[in-house]
């Protein structure tokens, strides 16, 4: 294949175009996925912030029943995998799932280690670092965000229960959001990009192949056939018509050479028959 003109013309073109398009599509998909995940993390951070603001008054008034109701209602929302609040000691105080209440959280777990890696826990993290992605017990992909409940002057001055002013974090809110819709959207984008790439490749390679075949290879094949026939039949063979200008001149030269050759052959025959 690499010895024919077709192979030598089309292989580099095909390899180059295909390779470059694949690279561009992979980078583009990676950029889109990162952008979508970043937006999802920001959305989760906004939601967690909204929950904290919504429950602030109930916490201030130490209204556990209202707080539990709010948490339960949020937990029943479509797309919310889990909602819970731990206290400072890592025990689940409130949760949308009743069986999680009063359970101790493992500080070395994936979502907790970011802050609890060293002897002194980190108290501020950016939204991307607060999020973690994992598969829950039901096999659903979940993006979870942890947001600390900071101690405020209204908290350590309240009459209900006293927090020490020096205590920076009172507890942690942990919200898990299902990523199934995100994953299916990314799958649709990926499929569309693959289809687009394949169509563009077929169009480019098909177009180049068709044009080359029509403009170069078919006329060359006719010229080749004419040259071979001229060798056998001399100048009695008809010159192919409608060849591109360059090939037309080559065909004319072949015709002249074939005519000269047949003339020389006839002269030789006459000489041989004369002796």
């Amino acid at each position: 294949m690499f010895r024919t003109l077709v192979g030598r013309a089309l292989v580099p073109v095909g390899l180059t175009v295909t390779g470059f398009m694949v690279v561009c599509c992979l980078l583009l998909y990676s950029a889109i996925r990162n952008g979508v995940k970043h937006d999802a993390a920001l959305h989760a951070a906004n939601l967690a912030d909204t929950i904290l603001k919504s429950t602030r008054y109930a916490m201030l008034k130490s209204d556990r029943e209202t707080l539990a109701t709010i948490i339960n209602n949020i937990g029943q929302q479509k797309g919310v995998s889990h909602v819970r609040i731990f206290n400072k000691r890592g025990v689940v105080s409130f949760s949308a799932k009743a069986d999680e209440i009063n359970r101790q959280v493992d500080k070395s777990a994936e979502g907790c280690i970011a802050c609890h890696r060293g002897p002194v826990p980190i108290t501020t993290l950016g939204p991307m670092n607060q999020t973690r992605t994992f598969r829950n017990a039901g096999g659903t992909s979940v993006m979870a965000i942890t947001m600390p409940v900071y101690n405020e002057p209204e908290c350590f001055n309240a009459a209900c229960h006293v927090h020490q002013p020096g205590q920076k974090v009172l507890g942690t809110l942990d919200v898990g959001l299902s990523q199934e819709s995100l994953i299916s959207s990314l799958a649709v984008i990926r499929t569309q990009m693959i289809i687009f790439t394949i169509m563009t490749l077929l169009l480019t390679l098909g177009g180049v192949t068709a044009l080359l075949r029509r403009s170069v290879f078919l006329p060359l094949q006719r010229l080749r056939d004419f040259a071979e026939a001229s060798v056998k039949g001399g100048d009695s063979v008809t010159t192919p018509s409608h060849l591109p200008d360059d090939l037309d001149r080559i065909a004319y030269s072949i015709r002249l050479l074939a005519g000269k050759g047949s003339g020389v052959g006839q002269k030789r025959d006459k000489t041989n028959s004369g002796t």
Binding site: T16, T18, L26
Partner: peptide, 26 residues
């Protein structure tokens, strides 16, 4: 970001080295 971009770098490598290798071979 290697997990996200590994295949892009690999595909680019195959393309560039494939074209260069073909050229040298010819």
């Amino acid at each position: 970001a290697l997990d996200d971009n590994f295949w892009a770098v690999f595909a680019a490598g195959i393309t560039i080295l494939g074209v260069e290798g073909y050229r040298i071979r010819q």
